[in-house]
Design a protein around this nucleic acid. Structure first.
Lengths: 193, 193
DNA sequence: TTTATGCCTGAACGCTTGTTCATGTGAACT
DNA sequence: AGTTCACATGAACAAGCGTTCAGGCATAAA
């Protein structure tokens, strides 16, 4: 079982590591299991990654990049701010639901010092997107004159909370439509209906 | 340094364990450090707790009980549903901010199989509270006729997301007032202002 | 004083972990 | 054919972990 492409091996390791990390979390996942899942030897892992932390960080960086890219792309050409917000929310929730693995791994390592900066960067980026949508909405008169940053934080919190629910209570999720609807229109009844 | 009250020792261990778990997370926290922080021997720990898991679970159960009790008490006598929701949100956010330790520990162990049921129970209880408020709001005509359960989930998600932010980005929190305002009134502008 | 009881100790055990390194192997080039 | 080089191996090492247990000490009861 010798002689394989280095690139393929690296990819195989990353894919396998994702599954293992998702199942056990960083601390409990061990290199032997990852090696076996990658169909490579323990020593082989260290050919491609400096150590366990390097493997984890490389993995998270690449997967979070995908995530951010997808959501970003989904709103860039929408002009109606209400619609843009709805689509952003829908994209985020659906992507999260479809890629539970990533959430699981992330969910298990929230407090870790390493990787924290990476997460913050990701979150800031996502929040920036929401801020832009809100700003446009205010400018066009569609939205109220709210505090852009704080409102973006609240909306982002809903998404983040949803994502967390996937880990803890996968059975009690809500739909993107209802979520957008509540945020856009609020809970209090007005005029007629 | 002998002869101490068993009850006091147990309490001392729990308090110390909270700090250690908060700093290191479950997996990385070790019994030696907890023992030292509790001013007791390693063996001493095992007089009060069957093992590490038992210690962790006992700790979480008691602290989450407090948390739930406080928020519950804060809304039980409020009749105006909008106000009740606002207070519940404010209580939750403020309590979370004030007791970051608990959040930290929880935040670090989200995926763990053990303790998951306990968390679910807690979450269901909290969500039930929100549902009741919404139901009252609809009945009294203050709120729209929304889907009670799903709306409660969304609102609870905001709170959960906020709580998560405490761990990841303590500098980008939002105020309870703005949060309630967005949920109650929505983002879209109406009529005049 | 002897015995019993409750609280406490920490060396020692067995196991798991991340990481290293001497060694092996096959394909490509000379 | 020999040489080189990238890819791969897994036993071995050192460190850390949770847990146990034979024993110690102080107070209360006999």
């Amino acid at each position: 079982m010798n002689k394989r492409s280095g690139i393929k091996s690296k990819k195989r390791i990353l894919d396998a590591a994702m599954k293992v990390f998702a199942e056990y979390g960083y601390a409990k996942a061990n290199m032997r299991v990852i090696a076996k899942a990658s169909d490579i030897s323990i020593g082989g892992l260290y050919l491609y990654f400096k150590n366990k932390e390097d493997l984890y960080l490389t993995l998270m960086k690449s997967r979070m990049g995908d995530f951010a890219g997808k959501t970003m792309e989904s709103v860039k050409d929408i002009n109606d701010p209400a619609k843009a917000l709805g689509i952003f929310i829908a994209m985020s929730l659906n992507y999260a639901k479809k890629h539970k693995e990533l959430i699981l791994v992330q969910g298990r390592e929230h407090g870790f010092a390493f990787g924290l900066e990476m997460k913050r960067k990701f979150f800031r980026k996502q929040r920036g997107l929401i801020e832009n949508i809100i700003r446009q909405g205010i400018q066009s008169g569609t939205f109220k004159k709210v505090d852009v940053q704080k409102t973006a934080r609240i909306i982002f919190s809903v998404i983040r909370g949803f994502v967390l629910s996937i880990v803890v209570e996968p059975d009690s999720l809500f739909s993107p439509e209802e979520c957008s609807n509540l945020i856009l229109n609020g809970l209090i009844r007005r005029n007629n209906k």
